[in-house]
Design a protein around this nucleic acid. Structure first.
Lengths: 186, 186
DNA sequence: AATTTACGTCAGCCATATTGACTTAATTCT
DNA sequence: AGAATTAAGTCAATATGGCTGACGTAAATT
């Protein structure tokens, strides 16, 4: 748990004993690349997914199961095809994971009432409980991360994250997210 | 590329034809779980890593290679052991990826001058160029994401991301990141 | 001299993704 | 009514990036 610590960090290996790098003049202007933000994102996302990972490991589930559970919990009655679109994976990849979740009584499939080809997906009571537990873990981390930030920071972060997303994907994602906050342009 | 769009999103599957969920009263108080933030983080991080992924795919490299390249670029002369600590993977996992990067002339290993057991890692000129290219891609996305946000937002986001990280891992990560911005407590 | 450290390697396993091909059933289109 | 499309599932093979355990070698430390 929380094993994100580095082993040694001995003498902070800054150009340790490397006298002969070509000095790589950077005439191309690598003015102040945002290394810190890149790395903060990396470690933040890692720990963010780490909380649920620990819980899911007890069920022999992985992150793939979490993603499926999350989006089914959020979109009860979703079609398999739509779920594939959201997750951006193939039918075959989803198949395995979904089967395991169904077998474990986490997710339930029901025949569509209008279109009987569909196997609409729902969380079971158990699945719903697990989904809520996992989201609450993430909520705690998010709340802790917002402590001490100026007023309006949460909204700022929401807009930042939205704008990180490919512009042409945003409309669909906004529909999916249906935030209680105002994420419209401007 | 930018295939993050969902296929259909037909009739926004909101409890489509599911009349008989136990209504899951949520007496446990699932008051306003932060689904939107969770999902924004998911999609934002996905697209953020997507840019480099596309470039790396041309070299037959994956995200694992990117992480190694990034941290070697950032910490020239880093020891293998320290890199393992940063990445949080095993020697064997790193071994494969690192070998490929060395064979491709992206990363260079030099014997430590004080401790001849060490194989200190450096990017080659080529590797440095690639690393810069990749980071610039991510920079563009970050800059676009910051557009239109209020003054001080970048700092807010930095603090948010830092506070997302496990508290006991922060000191080491701060050392690693050595941001030009002030990320100290308070 | 003994122990520990740094690094590497062999071998095998697992999770999650991929592609391509194909089937079944149901719906929709002409 | 018949053809085409769609929804879902399946078989088989492959790739990536992790993992564990067991060893080996050289160099440094105690």
């Amino acid at each position: 748990m929380a094993d994100v610590n580095f082993k040694n960090t001995p003498s902070s290996p800054l150009r340790e004993n490397g006298p002969d790098l070509p000095d790589s003049g950077e005439a191309t202007g690598d003015d102040a690349l945002p290394y810190d933000l890149v790395e903060l994102l990396f470690f933040a996302y890692r720990d963010f997914t780490g909380d649920p990972d620990e819980v899911l490991a007890k069920f022999e589930f992985g992150r793939a199961h979490h993603r499926v559970l999350h989006f089914v919990e959020r979109n009860p009655g979703i079609m398999v095809t739509d779920l594939l679109g959201i997750l951006g994976i193939t039918k075959q990849s989803l198949g395995r994971v979904l089967k395991q979740l169904v077998d474990a009584g986490i997710i339930e499939q029901r025949e569509g009432s209008h279109d009987r080809r569909q196997r609409l997906l729902y969380t079971t009571e158990t699945g719903h409980g697990l989904a809520v537990d996992l989201t609450r873990l993430q909520q705690k981390r998010l709340e802790r991360a917002l402590i001490g930030l100026p007023d309006g920071s949460e909204e700022t972060i929401r807009r930042f994250l939205l704008q990180m997303i490919d512009p042409d994907a945003r409309p669909d994602i906004l529909k999916l997210i249906r935030s209680s906050f105002d994420l419209r342009d401007r």
